[in-house]
């Protein structure tokens, strides 16, 4: 295998791996925003998922149990968002911030004994002949279960959203709450489902981060990935099929940052670390001007976004 192949494969895989936690959260937030609810609390849900996943993996030695624990933690926190903004009709932005504060506080509080511990994560999968193909070989041998599942989840969710009856009910609620209600849909129930799905996916994203990617727990370790995901939903046009390229944007910038750091580029690592945020912000702004022109935003959601005007 040539050195170039190895380098290219290496970069692709590191981009993919650092995108994966974000991809999960992004998919979750797409589902939530599809039912016309914005959830900034995904940041806190991700932290809760990361801690629960790490703790469960450490206790049982089984990373799969860690992922399940992460999903459960994310759902537990998102149920608060459902209660506040669907049940009590509180402002979704404020409710999301409250969920974020709680998730951050609780994960810092309960995470103290886990700081500095290490886990092994997943065992690598034997793939036989695939390993010998250039570029792709490097790729597949280093793909971890959360990466593979994330790549599968994106088209599956796309199919579900556009091709099934329940997916249609999500889209109907997102377009117009009153029409969906007139059609006989239980809109509040659908919205809660959307929020809980977002909770499950963001908890999964957090667990993917701590169990599979960093394999440790650090207070506030998500570093805004959840908030970036809320922004990237617009870039992905609320479309699960487009979630992977949108997530790769942040992940690619992060992988590039790490690559530049290790190859000794004389730029401060702190400055380099602003790159993923600035890249996401730039694309967000560009998508906004496109979305303003062309539409594509769930109509009920744009009401949520513009209610402050």
């Amino acid at each position: 295998m040539s050195e170039f192949d190895a380098a290219l494969g290496g970069f692709l895989i590191s981009a993919l791996r650092s995108s994966t936690p974000l991809l999960w959260v992004l998919l979750g937030e797409i589902l939530t925003q599809r039912v016309a609810v914005v959830n900034l609390g995904v940041e806190g849900q991700m932290l809760a998922g990361a801690l629960a996943g790490f703790a469960a993996t450490l206790a049982t030695g089984n990373p799969w149990i860690g992922l399940i624990a992460g999903v459960a933690a994310g759902m537990a926190l998102s149920s608060l968002h459902g209660l506040l903004c669907v049940g009590l009709k509180a402002n979704p932005f404020a409710s999301g911030l409250a969920v974020w504060m709680l998730g951050f506080g609780l994960s810092s509080f309960y995470g103290i004994p886990f700081v500095g511990q290490k886990i092994n994560g997943f065992k690598s999968m034997p793939l036989g002949f695939l390993e010998r193909i250039p570029v792709i070989g490097t790729l597949v041998t280093q793909i971890t279960p959360t990466v593979a599942m994330g790549i599968l989840a994106s088209p599956l969710l796309g199919w579900w959203l556009y091709r099934t009856r329940t997916g249609l009910s999500f889209r109907a609620v997102g377009e117009s709450l009153s029409s969906a209600k007139a059609l006989g849909l239980k809109t509040a129930w659908v919205q809660v489902m959307g929020i809980m799905a977002g909770g499950a996916f963001s908890g999964m994203g957090g667990a993917a981060l701590s169990v599979d990617y960093t394999r440790n727990w650090v207070e506030g370790m998500t570093q805004g990935r959840g908030l970036v995901a809320v922004g990237l939903v617009i870039v992905a046009r609320w479309n699960p099929y487009l979630a992977i390229p949108a997530a790769l944007l942040f992940g690619g910038a992060e992988a590039l940052t790490l690559r530049m750091q290790t190859s000794g580029v004389p730029i401060s690592s702190h400055l380099l670390h602003t790159l993923p945020y600035l890249a996401s912000l730039a694309v967000l702004v560009l998508s906004y001007s496109r979305a303003n022109k062309e539409g594509g935003t769930p109509a009920g959601l744009s009401a949520v976004f513009s209610q402050s005007q």
Partner: peptide, 23 residues
């Protein structure tokens, strides 16, 4: 209790205020 307990209480306060406000 670690000082992050104050952060938890802050989140609890925010959630309570939101819930009471909507009531």
């Amino acid at each position: 209790l670690p000082s992050s307990a104050a952060l938890v209480l802050q989140g609890v306060l925010f959630a309570s205020v939101l819930a009471a406000g909507s009531l």
